[in-house]
């Protein structure tokens, strides 16, 4: 794919500029993997993009919804973007990307965390559960059933995060009263405002006593 920018082609920029830039961005080259001289040659041979791609990715093993994955990812890829863009698990939502809304909540080794603030490589060897991993075949998780019954959503965008968080809220032992639920669910924003229905769903699942 050729780059589209006529200005750049006219600028007559020297190769050394572009090499410096490549070196700066391809931080891996300052490490032990490649000596700079090899990298320089690579850059001069205009292998940069392919090389960079190969060098910037590191191996990652994850178990996602019970399935083992062996991946190669850039360290800057968040768990959220890995799930959505590379594993096609788009049930986990991006609502702010800054840890301010809870839409991206997943379980890592059974604990609720924000996947948008989690670098995927830091989760190497761990088990990730997303909304797609809750139901057993056609059998919905009790929390999913309760959200349906109590209409704990409208647009549905915050819903996966709410459900993952709600399950954890019960597991953590913080669903003993409506007030406690409201406090411990406050990291999950619902702009449609289905909050009271979500609380009712959690109360019901908690009272049902099933293991979640």
């Amino acid at each position: 794919m050729s780059k589209i920018n006529s200005r750049d082609q006219q600028s007559g920029e020297s190769k050394s500029d572009s090499r410096r830039d490549f070196l700066k961005q391809s931080a891996v080259l300052t490490g032990a993997v490649l000596t700079p001289s090899i990298a320089l040659k690579a850059a001069e041979a205009q292998w940069d993009e392919k090389l960079a791609e190969a060098l910037e990715k590191i191996p990652l093993k994850l178990e996602v919804n019970g399935v083992s994955k062996s991946l190669m990812v850039e360290p800057r890829v968040t768990l959220l973007d890995l799930l959505r863009e590379q594993l096609n698990l788009t049930g986990t939502k991006k609502g702010c990307d800054y840890g301010q809304c809870g839409a991206c909540t997943v379980h890592v080794n059974g604990t609720r965390v924000l996947s948008c603030l989690t670098l995927a490589v830091m989760q190497d060897g761990r088990k990730v559960t997303t909304i797609e991993g809750l139901a057993e075949g056609d059998q919905l998780h009790p929390m999913q059933e309760a959200f349906l019954k109590h209409d704990g959503f409208q647009c549905g965008y915050c819903t996966p995060g709410q459900i993952m968080s709600a399950i954890a809220c019960i597991r953590e032992g913080h669903a003993d009263s409506e007030e406690e639920i409201r406090e411990y669910m406050s990291g999950n924003i619902c702009r449609c405002g289905a909050y009271p229905n979500i609380v009712n769903a959690i109360v019901e699942v908690k009272k049902g006593g099933k293991k979640v």
């Binding site: 931080a27 490490g31 990307d97 603030l117 670098l119």
Partner: peptide, 19 residues
């Protein structure tokens, strides 16, 4: 934990070359 650093890196406020 990354809860602040990843946020800051996304917004270009800090840019460590190695983590």
């Amino acid at each position: 934990g990354g809860t602040n650093l990843v946020d800051l890196m996304k917004r270009g406020i800090v840019s460590p070359e190695r983590l």
